[in-house]
Amino acid sequence: MNIDKNVVLRYLGYNPGKTNINNSMQEKIDYYISLGLTLLEPNTTYRIFNTVNINSTGVELPEADLILPGKDIVKHLKHSKKVCLVAATIGPQLESKVAELFRQKEYAGGTILDAVGSDAVEKVADQLQDKLKFIAKKQGYHITWRFCSGYGDVPLEINRKLAAAVNAESIGIRVTNTNMLIPRKSILGIVGFNLREETAIPLANKCSYCNATNCPYRNRSDSCAKSNGNITQ
């Protein structure tokens, strides 16, 4: 697996053409990317649902006894014949190292490592996405991009049911009472299996699903910095 240094830099507010980084900072970033790679405990799981009921107010997965409410998820899945719920995590090791670094007053290191974790969990989920693409193709389907709870008008409150439906606990993901994921660097997502390739277009700009208009990444037209799909308004 590769951590994308450019993405890590961007998460940290690096502005190409403006930000100047000296060699020792470059080395520091390389070091924490390396350290991050040693701390990953990647794990993923998924479940494919063959029955999908879509109406204008939401998407129902009767096998999971789950209704995903909102216009955005309807738009996301409107061409889907099957729906796959996915969960991915990098485990707790990396974030406890971030906390340890802060305690040791290695603030720069802790900050960098946290950003490495953000990219890592996306990469872990992307690996699963590749596998799903393969599985779907064999069945004659094309997969959509990964829509995560909290995107657009899908509320985070759905996390608990979503986690239960995909048995996220089996890979160590827990949902708090306030619907946050532990480990923090975890993802719950929703992928559609579509028959026609042209309906399964990749997502060009995640920010279009986010209402955080004040977000510096969005304002710089960069990719989003949020790791765990929990982008909300």
Binding site: L9, L12, G13, Y14, N15, K18, T19, N20, I21, M25, K28, I29, K105, E106, Y107, A108, G110, T111, I112
Partner: peptide, 15 residues
């Protein structure tokens, strides 16, 4: 603020 430094540089100076 001008974007010439990014977060880890701010943190490193803080250290």
């Amino acid at each position: 603020e001008k974007g010439e430094f990014f977060l880890p540089q701010l943190m490193q100076s803080a250290e």
